[in-house]
Design a protein around this nucleic acid. Structure first.
Lengths: 211, 211
DNA sequence: ATTTTGTTTAACAACCCTGTTAGACATTGC
DNA sequence: GCAATGTCTAACAGGGTTGTTAAACAAAAT
């Protein structure tokens, strides 16, 4: 069972690498660390992937693509009214972050040290965002003209949602870094989600008075 | 002129170090880099500061203290009505970030790699924030009970403001990293500031219809 | 003037990190 | 069986990084 153990080791290395990269970022992660966590000699790491950058690419390309899905979720689901859909967008985006809580942190770090990373990011999801914004603006304008919602730019709305959502998880990483009480964090997150929806809702909805 | 040149060199090293740390973070900054930028031999860096961590401490302790001022600005200035004061808080906080645009980025990075950094941060400004929140909550409750503003938790309000403000500068760092057109960035920032005030305002103010 | 003290340099030691390589060992195909 | 190929290890080379040190140099103190 050589091939099996081989595939297994490659997997182990990838998993270990993902963990280390996510936790410490590219720069701070050492191939020896990855090897240790994977339980293999560090020569193995280079045998399978040659360079540290190779390992990193394999992982982050997948991660970047993952970002597309929640963005595209914004554009889909035409069956709901716009305000309800925006609500759903917040929910989807927030839950995506909840499922990948280290992602904002990770991206933040890589964006800082990896100029290449920024370029790849822009190439891979920049146009998706731009297109989504344009589409959203058309819909927004329709509702604005019909006097249903307040005047707002799509970029501002998206920026507001992303800011509020993403920053929640950055703050959690900072303040609750040792906290092990998942239940407590969960309650905190649900509270924030409600608050964010409320804030965005009040920003756009024209007629008033909801509890 | 030995003492003068000495103080000068120490200053040069500190300035160079600040620049490098801000740009690349602790891990990625090398003492040789600092020496090079300061225009001294790298032995000088160790002569004056012994260790890289020492240099870092000197700088970030100042920076962390800088964070206090805009927070305390929240509590002061009792002469205005609460909604106007919250407006002023946003303005002050935003302008503080504008004057120190690399700070969010820098803190983000250090928070990630320096567990000690988080502790220092908590020690130095954690209680200031907690106290400010408590004070703010009392005032908020007063306005809420009088039916002037919507029900909201002080922590949520603060979190909303900080999220929207800080994330603006993180986003700028990412998307406009090469951009040299300060005027364009300035317009973008003013637009964001207006939008953030609008969003927070609509979140808290009960009676409606303002342009 | 000379001792003491502080500044500066060049060279170096120790360490860690990435990546390679020679050779051992196992597996597969013929 | 045996050749070819793939997996694996231990050892190492090369390069960079932090921090030290001996010795030169300058200034200040006595």
């Amino acid at each position: 069972m050589d091939k099996k153990s081989a595939r297994n080791k490659k997997e182990l290395i990838l998993k270990a690498a993902e963990h280390e990269f996510m936790a410490n970022g590219y720069e701070a992660t050492k191939t020896t660390q990855i090897a240790e966590r994977a339980g293999v000699t560090h020569a193995m790491v280079h045998y399978y992937f040659q360079t540290k950058e190779n390992i990193f690419r394999k992982i982050y390309e997948d991660k970047i693509d993952m970002l597309k899905d929640p963005i595209l979720a914004i554009v889909e689901s035409k069956d709901l009214e716009l305000p309800q859909r925006i609500d759903a967008i917040i929910e989807t985006h927030f839950d995506f972050l909840k499922a990948n809580p280290e992602l904002p942190y990770f991206l933040m770090g890589e964006i800082r040290n990896n100029p290449v990373f920024i370029e790849t990011l822009k190439d891979r999801i920049g146009d998706v965002i731009a297109k989504s914004c344009k589409k959203l603006q058309v819909e927004l304008d329709d509702y604005i003209n019909r006097g249903i919602i307040n005047s707002i730019l799509a970029e501002d709305l998206v920026m507001n949602i992303v800011s509020l959502n993403v920053f929640t998880f950055i703050a959690i990483s900072v303040t609750q870094s040792h906290e092990r009480d998942d239940n407590k964090i969960n309650l905190l997150l649900e509270q924030r989600k409600r608050e964010i929806k409320e804030t965005i809702n009040r920003r756009i909805i024209k007629t008033e008075k909801q509890a």
